[in-house]
Design a protein around this nucleic acid. Structure first.
Lengths: 336, 336
DNA sequence: TCGTCGTTTTGAAACGTTTCAGAATGGATC
DNA sequence: GATCCATTCTGAAACGTTTCAAAACGACGA
């Protein structure tokens, strides 16, 4: 039945000091005499005082909080990215607000607005849509913004992985293992990652002196989920054309794998399979999945480091566009 | 170089009204004359005004925000729960702050403290540890608390699933399909879910007139991850004793499955396998996984509904302890 | 005893909202 | 023309912090 929780004033009264001193104990304890500090700390404990972040943020003009908007929290890849972000942020005393846009522009918009209202100090965004307006607005509010898993456009930091290169790696590997009829199982082309990875595949095929049209087919699924992957198998096998499948991510690939095996298709003998992201379940699948690895945790850490640098160094900060190189991880699904 | 973003005052000046009116447009638009409202809305647009949530929360004493602390965001089960919570919350205008305790008491503690500082209106907690102190404190701050995936202790709402029953279902099913030597692959007993599910298994065996010691073995893994599951297979197969394995969750079960298949063990012929949670990857696995299904999304929705009820109805609110029943979903991993 | 200087402590002024008692406005009604 | 309502609008007082100029204190040397 306490109407309002005890504030800094109550603490001050109890400890017999001024509010300024209590605030100092909270924010610069080293400038407070030891005895005083102890008294205040005891009062805090006795009253169960917990700092009111609203008031603090309002007055101080910063919230010590970062917003992270990911494309799909159901995809373990993003979970790992988030882990990296959180780790780097918490080391510097920042807390991360995790938001899931679920690939929906309207949800991305809603979350960005929320973060804006909360006056987060920085935003890490895996964009669904390049909503330049809102990003511009955030930046004009002195909010640091970094694009994650997306190349920047010069006006802000970004951390990405070269997806074209990743597609290339996948293509080269399949070709090297003798495959010549590759189905690319992918999501809508509006998802940049899907488009880029497909482009890389085409490049690899072309570079090998093959005709892309003869070598590659595209099988589009509406959503990058396991279910859709599994369901796509029927179409994948329909005419017996393919001797390999490259999936736009591991979640889909695992669905495809399940579908293939239960249809009696041997992987990799009858059909080679390669995924993307190298999530934990890939190594652990029935037929361990060859995949294109991305340094997920490191992406998160780097992105966080960039926002924090922009936040701390302000004027000296120069925007950077970090691009990681993906790696091929070969497992049984492509090489028996 | 706008030092501070435009506030309600600037909007008021621009629209030629008082701040009170602007606030009304924001919070009770129907009490404002249509013309005035339009003027204010235009000013808001022109200035790019975004409400400052800190100030709002500070003054109004509520943040329209809920905190959700989950045990393991890497487990798709919790992702689904979160989805349910978010859905129910956003329908009522609340935003959810998602936190991951990762099974660590200190992280749970840190997140609860953060949520307390943020003055969230309600907290949904999947407890690592029953930190009654902090929960008590939250509740004394007029913060609604509901326990998720954990039975309550009478003093707050809770939404749980009967894990003992789930373990029973698994046990009964394995016995019904003729298995008599069951290994229970589980995490530390300190995780309540693991303990309860194991208890259910024992009950099923005992109820069938069998001796639990002769019928059940326990194989403990340090963490409920796919890797650990896969690695446990060696021990699982060591003496050829088992004809079935029951895993404490699907993430582990899928790891075990991968290990079994690549060791040449046929599932279910040589060894039946059953998981828990019925995550999406279960249906989609190489050998589709029999599992104990929990209504994850519904758990989230219900939990959110309970907090919101406590928040809205206050005095009339009566604490409820909702317990869902788990369901057996039979797939190929236990029945060819 | 008096300065002086460094360390602590103080107290009041914001920060940007919400809220609410009351003032203005403008019809209706007598 | 006076009165009464309902509808709109106003303005000032919080909300709980942080911050900063200035005051208080103490130790020290002159």
């Amino acid at each position: 039945m306490t109407p309002r929780p005890a504030g800094i004033k109550a603490v001050a009264a109890r400890a017999g000091v001024s509010v300024g001193t209590v605030s100092n104990v909270l924010n610069r304890p080293d400038q407070v005499a030891k005895g005083t500090r102890r008294k205040v700390e005891e009062a805090i404990r006795e009253l169960g005082f917990v700092r009111n972040a609203s008031a603090s943020t309002l007055k101080a003009g910063r919230s010590m909080t970062l917003g992270l908007v990911v494309l799909d929290i159901g995809n373990p890849f993003f979970t790992e990215v988030a882990r990296g972000v959180e780790q780097a942020a918490s080391e510097r005393g920042y807390t991360v607000l995790l938001c899931n846009s679920a690939g929906t522009p309207s949800r991305q918009e809603a979350h960005l607005r929320f973060l804006e209202e909360q006056r987060v100090d920085g935003v890490l965004l895996t964009p669904v849509t390049e909503d330049s307006d809102r990003i511009e607005r955030l930046r004009s509010r002195a909010t640091a913004v970094v694009l994650v898993d997306e190349a920047g456009r010069g006006d802000c930091c970004s951390v990405a992985v070269d997806d074209v290169r990743g597609g290339q790696l996948a293509g080269e590997h399949l070709l090297a293992t003798g495959r010549r009829r590759i189905t690319y199982v992918t999501g809508p082309d509006s998802i940049r990652q899907c488009a880029d990875r497909g482009r890389g595949l085409v490049e690899a095929v072309t570079a090998a002196g093959l005709d892309a049209h003869d070598t590659i087919r595209v099988l589009e699924v509406p959503e990058l989920t396991g279910i859709e992957g599994r369901q796509s198998v029927e179409r994948l096998l329909a005419d017996g054309w393919s001797d390999a499948a490259f999936c736009a991510n591991d979640v889909v690939a695992l669905g495809v794998l399940g579908g293939l095996l239960s249809a009696g298709v041997r992987v990799p003998q009858d059909l080679a399979l390669i995924g993307y992201d190298d999530i934990e379940f890939a190594a652990t699948a029935a037929v361990p999945l060859t995949s294109i690895q991305q340094p997920a945790v490191q992406i998160g850490q780097t992105a966080a480091a960039l926002v924090l640098d922009e936040l701390t160094r302000r004027d000296e900060h120069a925007h950077q566009e970090v691009v990681f190189r993906p790696d091929l991880v070969i497992r049984r699904s492509t090489s028996s």
